[in-house]
Design a protein around this nucleic acid. Structure first.
Length: 406
RNA sequence: GUGAGUGUAGCUCAGUUGGUUAGAGCAUCGGGUUGUGGUUCCGAGGGUCGUGGGUUCGAGACCCAUCAUUCACCCCA
C-alpha cells in the first residue's frame, strides 16, 4: 500500500466539506472588501523566495522544497503566498500603471518541516495582498476583514499588534538591541545564534529566563519616526472605534524579512503549540526588492488547517431525492426518472432492485429528504410512491406529476 | 535537525507474570415471513498483531533495527 508522504494529507469527507465551506465564505467576504481572486503557480524560481522571504529566514534556509528541473532551472515549491502574488503583480506591470490593486488567493504551500499538531509539509493558506495603498487605514481594513471572518466562523482569537518601523529605524534598533545583548550575559544558546543571524528573533524566545532578561531591552516602538508613529496611532484608533480588542506586543516580530511598520498576528489558544492562525503586515519595500517600482503593500495569510480545527459545521440538513426500484422490471424507468430529476435536484439511485426496507435504509443514510420508489403496483398504475423522510408524509402520485414536481 | 510517546479489524481500543484456533464496541453487509428508514433483535464478512531480525520449547507481549505516526523544541500559518 502506498501512503501519502510525510506531512501531507488528503482532503476527504468531512475535511473537504469544511475546506470548501471555509474558502466559500472567506472569498465572499474578501470580495466585499474589494479583493479579486488571483491564482499564481505553485512552482517558482527559487530566487523569488530568496529575495522576498529573505535568506536569513528558516523558511528559505532549510524548509524549501527546492530542486533542479529537467531544464536545469533552480525551482522551488512556494513556501508562502505573498512572494508569488507580488511577482504576478509586477509581471502584469501593475507597478508601472499605478493605482490600487487588491487580490485574494488560497491554495497549498510547502515547507519541509517536521510535522506536528497544526503543522504540515503541505498546508493551505488563504491570504490577501493589497498594493498601492499606503494609508494605515488599509492596514486597519485587512485586520477588520480578518475579524469579520473569525466572527462569521465563531472562532475566538487574540490579536497582537506591533510596528516594526521603517528600514532605517529598524537598522538603528537592531544595533541597539545587539549592544544590549552583548552587554547582558545569560541568554540561551539559541538566542546567541539568533543575535548573529536575526537579532530581533531573540525577542520572542520562549525561554522564561531570556524573557526576564529582556525586560530592560530597547523597545522597537521608541525608534519609530514621527510618521510611522502616527500611522501606528491611526491604526489603533480605527481598531478602537470598531471595538476590536488587541494587545500591543513590542516583542512581536515576524519570521519573514519583508515586513515594515505594521505587523500583526491572530492567536488561538485552542489548537496546541502552533497557535498562530493568521499573520500579516505591511511590506512597502517588497515590490522594489523584486524589481518593481516602489509600491506600498499590506496583506495577511491564514493557516487553513489550523482554522479548520476550530470550525464547527452545522448539522447537515436533508436534501434531494433517492429513487429506487423494488423489482427488476422497474429499474429502467427509475433510472430515466433519476436522470430527469438531476436537472434540478441532487438525486441518488441504486442500480439494484431491493426490498423497500433496504432502499429506505440507504436513502436515510444518504441524508436525502425524499424517498421515491417504483414496485409492481406502481408499475401497473403508472405512479410512484413517495415518502418525506423528515415529516414521514407519504403520497402516491402519477409519474408525470412527479416529473414536473419541483 | 533534536527529544519523548505510540503502532493489534475500516474506526476506538482490550489482550493478565511470554502458553492452544487473537477479542469487544462502533461501522459495513445480510436477515427478523405481507412493500416502511433513522432507536431494536439475530447473523456474517473482515487481522502476515507496522516491517525485518533476535531471545525462547513457545512472542501480539521481551531485545535490537527500521518505517510510520503523535506531541514538543526549532520555526511558522
Amino acid at each position: 500500500m502506498i501512503n501519502p508522504l510525510r506531512g501531507m494529507r488528503d482532503l476527504i469527507d468531512n475535511d473537504s466539506e469544511r475546506y470548501s465551506y471555509f474558502i466559500e465564505h472567506c472569498s465572499r467576504i474578501a470580495k466585499n472588501y474589494g479583493f479579486a481572486f488571483i491564482e499564481t503557480p505553485i512552482l517558482e524560481e527559487t530566487a523569488l523566495f530568496k529575495r522576498s522571504v529573505g535568506e536569513s529566514s528558516d523558511i528559505v534556509n532549510k524548509e524549501m522544497y527546492q530542486f533542479t528541473d529537467k531544464g536545469e532551472h533552480d525551482v522551488c515549491m512556494r513556501p508562502e503566498g505573498t512572494a508569488g502574488v507580488v511577482r504576478a503583480f509586477i509581471s502584469a506591470k501593475y507597478d508601472k500603471i499605478g493605482g490600487v490593486k487588491r487580490f485574494f488567493y488560497h491554495g497549498p504551500m510547502f515547507r519541509y518541516e517536521r510535522p506536528q499538531k497544526g503543522r504540515l509539509r503541505q498546508f493551505h493558506q488563504f491570504g490577501v495582498e493589497s498594493f498601492g495603498e499606503a494609508s494605515a487605514m488599509e492596514d486597519a481594513n485587512v485586520i477588520l476583514m480578518l475579524v469579520e471572518i473569525f466572527d462569521f466562523f465563531g472562532i475566538r482569537t487574540k490579536l497582537k499588534l506591533n510596528s516594526l518601523g521603517s528600514n532605517e529605524s529598524m537598522r538603528v534598533y537592531k544595533e541597539k538591541l545587539v549592544n544590549f545583548l552583548d552587554a547582558t550575559p545569560g541568554f540561551c544558546a539559541d538566542c546567541l545564534t539568533r543575535k548573529a543571524t536575526n537579532p530581533i528573533r531573540v525577542l520572542d524566545c520562549k525561554d522564561e529566563h531570556c524573557q526576564s532578561l529582556l525586560k530592560d531591552a530597547p523597545v522597537v516602538l521608541d525608534f519609530l519616526s514621527p510618521t510611522c508613529k502616527k500611522d501606528f496611532e491611526t491604526l489603533q484608533s480605527v481598531l478602537d472605534s470598531f471595538q476590536v480588542h488587541y494587545e500591543v506586543d513590542t516583542k512581536l516580530v515576524r519570521g519573514l524579512d519583508y515586513y515594515n511598520n505594521t505587523a500583526f498576528e491572530f492567536i488561538s489558544e485552542e489548537i496546541g503549540a502552533q497557535s498562530a492562525i493568521a499573520g500579516g503586515g505591511r511590506y512597502d519595500r517588497l515590490v522594489e526588492f523584486l524589481d518593481g517600482k516602489p509600491t506600498a503593500g499590506v496583506g495577511f495569510a491564514m493557516g487553513i488547517e489550523r482554522l479548520m480545527e476550530l470550525i464547527v459545521m452545522g448539522e447537515q440538513k436533508r436534501e434531494g431525492y433517492y429513487l429506487a426500484a423494488l423489482c427488476e422490471a422497474a429499474l429502467e424507468s427509475v433510472f430515466s426518472l433519476t436522470i430527469a430529476k438531476r436537472k434540478k435536484h441532487i438525486t441518488l439511485t441504486s442500480y439494484q432492485a431491493k426490498s423497500l426496507k433496504a432502499h429506505l435504509k440507504a436513502a436515510d443514510k444518504a441524508l436525502v429528504k425524499y424517498f421515491v420508489c417504483i414496485g409492481e403496483d406502481e408499475l401497473k398504475n403508472g405512479t410512484v410512491w413517495m415518502k418525506d423522510l423528515e415529516t414521514k408524509e407519504e403520497q402516491t402520485l402519477l409519474i408525470n406529476n412527479f416529473k414536473e414536481k419541483n
